[in-house]
Amino acid sequence: MTTAGSPSRDAAPRTEVVVPRVGPIRVSGHLTRQGADLVRGTVETARRTGSPVVVVDLAGVRAADDAGLDALHTLRDTLSGRGTRLLLRNEPGVTPA
């Protein structure tokens, strides 16, 4: 399943979604709060299908603003309280340990 965002640079990112039970949700483009809202919808769909762990791969994100990243961190905290683990891979500006 593929979801395409607006072609505008400041709009939502283009998002490629792989079936959550098989692979991660891949995000590309510029991550803003609006883009994070699109990702949230896809993550919620994966959660409702019973996936205990949902992986969001941000390797394709060229730029991200604080609002977009904060929205994903808030989503991670919210899902944790519901028994679902949200893993954010390749976060922009975060060096792996």
Rank of each mutant, 00 (worst) to 15 (best):
T2K: 15
T3C: 11
T3G: 12
T3F: 12
T3M: 12
A4W: 03
G5Y: 00
S6Y: 01
S8D: 06
S8K: 10
R9V: 03
R9M: 01
R9Y: 06
D10I: 03
A12L: 06
A12H: 01
P13H: 10
R14P: 01
R14I: 04
R14A: 08
T15F: 09
E16C: 08
E16M: 11
V18C: 06
R21C: 10
V22A: 15
G23T: 11
R26F: 02
V27D: 01
V27H: 04
V27P: 00
S28L: 05
S28M: 06
L31V: 00
T32P: 01
T32A: 03
T32D: 05
G35S: 02
A36I: 08
L38P: 03
V39K: 13
V39H: 10
T42H: 14
R47H: 13
R47Q: 14
R48E: 14
V54Q: 02
D57W: 02
L58K: 04
A59W: 00
A59E: 10
G60S: 03
A63E: 08
A64N: 11
A64I: 01
D65K: 14
D66Y: 12
D66I: 14
D66E: 14
A67K: 10
T74G: 13
T74F: 12
D77N: 12
T78F: 12
T78H: 15
S80W: 11
G81H: 14
R82A: 11
R82V: 08
G83Y: 03
G83N: 05
G83I: 03
T84Q: 13
L86Q: 07
L87R: 15
L88A: 02
E91Q: 15
P92L: 06
G93D: 03
T95C: 07
T95P: 05
A97K: 11
